[in-house]
Computed example of a mutant assay.
Amino acid sequence: MSWRDRVFCEDALEGLARIPDGEIDLLIADPPYGLGKDYGNDSDKLDNDAYLAWTEQWIDAALPKLKPNGSLYIFLTWRYSPEIFVMLKRRMTMLNEIVWDRRVPSMGGSTRKYSSVHDTIGFFARAKDYYFDLDAIRIPYDAQTKKARSRSIFVGAKWLEMGYNPKDVWSVSRLHREHKERADHPTQKPLEIVERMIKASCPAGGVVLDPFMGSGTTAVAARRCGRQFVGFELNPAYCALIEQRVADLDPISTQTSDEQVTG
C-alpha cells in the first residue's frame, strides 16, 4: 500500500519507518510546544528534559527521510527554540529564523513581562543546492510603488513586475473562532503560512511530510498546491477531521502544478 497522500493515525516515531529514506522534498513540523496543551492525550505534558530528549528523537528519525536537497520548516515557541535550533544546526544549515506575528489584539496579558504574540519558525536545509522558488511566493508591489519607480532604469525590472521577497517577519492573523478556516483544533496554523512554505520549498509534484498533522493544514495546503503529502497524527478525532478537510476540498480551488509555478 502506498504511503503517499495519506495521514496515518499513529505515533510519528513508529510510523516514520513506513517512509523510505531520501523520498521527501519538504518537512513541515508543528510539534507540541511543551506548554501542556490538551490534544486529547498527554503528548504535550513532558517536563523540560523529557521534551527536549523527545524532540531530538523525532528529529533524528525524520531527517533521513529528506532528499539531499530537501529542507525543513519547524514551528516553535520562544521557550524552546534556542535549544532546538542548536540541535538542528548540528545536522543542517540554518537559513532563517522567521517570526510569525499572530496579530493578537491588545487585550489584557501579563503585568510582569511583555505579552507574547508570536511564534518562531526555523527554516533549515540539508545542502547548499536546496530547492527554493522565490518567484512562486513574491508579494506584488502596489500601483503607487510601481509608479514611483518609473525611471528608465526600472523599466522591465523583474523584481518590480513580479514583486518582492517576503521578509522574515510574517504578519498573518491567527485563526480566531469566527475565521472561515477554523477547525476544532487548539493550535491550527493558517493556510497562508503553510502554502507559502510549500510553494517556495517543494517542487511541483513533490512530497511534503508533516509528522504532527493536527488539524491537517499541511495536507490541505499540499493538495491545493499540487503536491503530495504524508503525515502522522495520534488523536483519532483529528485524523477524522483531516480526512474530512481533504475530502471537502473544491477541485476548482486546487491549483495545478503549472498554476502553482506562476504563483
Rank of each mutant, 00 (worst) to 15 (best):
M94A: 13
L76S: 12
V169T: 15
R177C: 06
Y131L: 02
T77C: 11
V99W: 05
I59P: 04
E83M: 10
D129R: 08
T77K: 03
L134G: 05
Y130Q: 03
S116R: 14
R177T: 13
K128V: 04
F75L: 09
H118L: 06
S171K: 12
I98S: 05
G70C: 03
K128F: 03
N96E: 14
L72S: 09
E56W: 06
R79D: 11
W58Q: 10
H179Q: 07
Q57P: 00
D60I: 06
G108H: 05
S116V: 09
P105Y: 01
K167L: 05
M87S: 13
R90N: 14
I98Q: 01
V99L: 13
I59D: 01
R149A: 10
H176F: 12
P166G: 03
E178L: 11
T93I: 12
K67L: 04
F124T: 09
S173T: 11
P82W: 01
N69R: 10
H179I: 06
E178W: 06
I84N: 02
P166T: 02
D101V: 01
K167A: 09
A148D: 11
F123L: 10
P82R: 05
V155W: 12
W78I: 04
S81A: 15
V169Q: 09
F154P: 03
L63D: 04
M94F: 04
L95D: 10
Y131F: 15
A183E: 13
Y164C: 04
V99Y: 02
A127W: 07
R91I: 01
D129Y: 02
E56T: 06
L72V: 15
K167P: 00
I121T: 08
M162K: 15
R177D: 14
G163S: 03
S173W: 05
E181G: 03
S81H: 15
V155C: 06
L72N: 09
W58A: 08
K113Q: 13
L95S: 11
P140G: 01
L95V: 07
E56S: 12
M94D: 05
F85S: 14
V172H: 10
N165A: 09
W58Y: 08
T120N: 11
R90P: 00
T93A: 14
P64M: 03
K147M: 11
R138Q: 08
K158T: 09
L160V: 13
W58P: 04
R174W: 10
R112I: 11
E97K: 13
A148R: 15
R91K: 15
T120P: 00
Y164K: 08
M162R: 15
A136V: 08
E56H: 03
W100H: 04
K158Y: 08
A125L: 03
D60S: 14
D184T: 03
S116N: 14
I137N: 02
I139G: 00
L66P: 10
Y80D: 08
Q144Y: 00
I121M: 14
S110G: 10
R149E: 04
G156I: 01
Y130V: 01
L66G: 10
A183Q: 15
L66Y: 12
M107H: 07
Y164S: 07
P140Y: 02
M92F: 09
D119F: 08
F75G: 01
A157P: 03
